[in-house]
Design a binder for these strands. Structure first.
Lengths: 157, 157
DNA sequence: ACATTCCATACTATTTTAGTCAAGATATAT
DNA sequence: ATATATCTTGACTAAAATAGTATGGAATGT
């Protein structure tokens, strides 16, 4: 099972992008500052995200990254897959050759679990997260904005 | 998130125990042979399982390990917790201090996911696994038995 | 006595994580 | 044209975790 800081960083960075990519592209330096992730590490992660066509980039001053699709069309699982190759609780990658080319005793259990995790992460898009109250509140804090009632006053965003 | 070979080995070994601990205690050497897990590694895992009172042991010839409770009363999550301390997809261990003593942008997402995983693994006991057809078939293969219709012929077990 | 089994600890090779560092390539603003 | 911001690539590294090995014991049944 692969769900480590790496995947969490990637989802967090992509969510930051979704929250800030209203008009201009977002430079990694901004994401680094807001989310507390090292710039060089972000560069590695975004190289993979770009290869998986989840983001596109613009170089030079004023450049940065943009989501390649609408936030609603990017499920969380796509981000994790782009970084980690797979979300899989089995040892054999679902092939069923865990022991002597046969499935091991608990193969089916891990297959079931993998499916559950996949379903959960496939059912939530970056767009879903953007519209969550607590995400907006945290994002406002990170931007140094003071927001009392996020949803009722969101015209100020 | 912690769900690695370590936890899988532990669950597999415990299931082997549940399948074979009808009467006499089961020596780790048998589990090692049947499940293809190194004996020394099993010893480390069972030290933790014993400290967590999931199994009890008997030394000397004819000795080995036994389940400390009925297989029906041991959820899979208990085994993993005994080995890994926790099943938790967050970075902060659920404390919500992931970034500057405040929850990070994706804190809630990982909390939700952790809860789903926990629910799934808490809802399945070793007893549930023992009664599964495919587990019985695999177990029969490992024991070198030829079983055509496992459920219909299980008096031979 | 002896073989079997658990028990404990220390050690190690490999892999992964989570970066750092350096050297570019490219586009934009001036 | 030049300076600068930004992406792009690749090599390197420290720390941790994984998946073991190795060694030496302690208890117990025969």
């Amino acid at each position: 099972m692969k769900l480590t800081t790496k995947g969490r960083y990637a989802v967090t960075a992509m969510l930051d992008l979704a929250l800030h990519a209203k008009d201009a592209p977002v430079p990694l330096a901004d994401i680094s500052r807001r989310q507390g992730i090292s710039l060089s590490y972000l560069e590695q992660l975004f190289a993979k995200l770009r290869r998986n066509e989840l983001v596109n980039s613009a170089r030079g001053p004023g450049g940065g990254y943009r989501l390649n699709r609408a936030a609603e069309d990017i499920p969380v699982v796509a981000v994790i897959n782009a970084i980690n190759e797979n979300v899989d609780a089995t040892r054999c990658g679902g092939l069923g050759n865990c022991q002597d080319n046969e499935p091991c005793l608990t193969h089916e259990l891990w297959m079931d679990l993998s499916e559950r995790i996949h379903e959960f992460l496939a059912g939530i898009s970056l767009g879903d997260l953007v519209s969550r109250r607590e995400v907006q509140a945290i994002s406002a804090r990170q931007d140094g904005r003071v927001v009392e009632r996020v949803l009722m006053a969101d015209s100020s965003l």
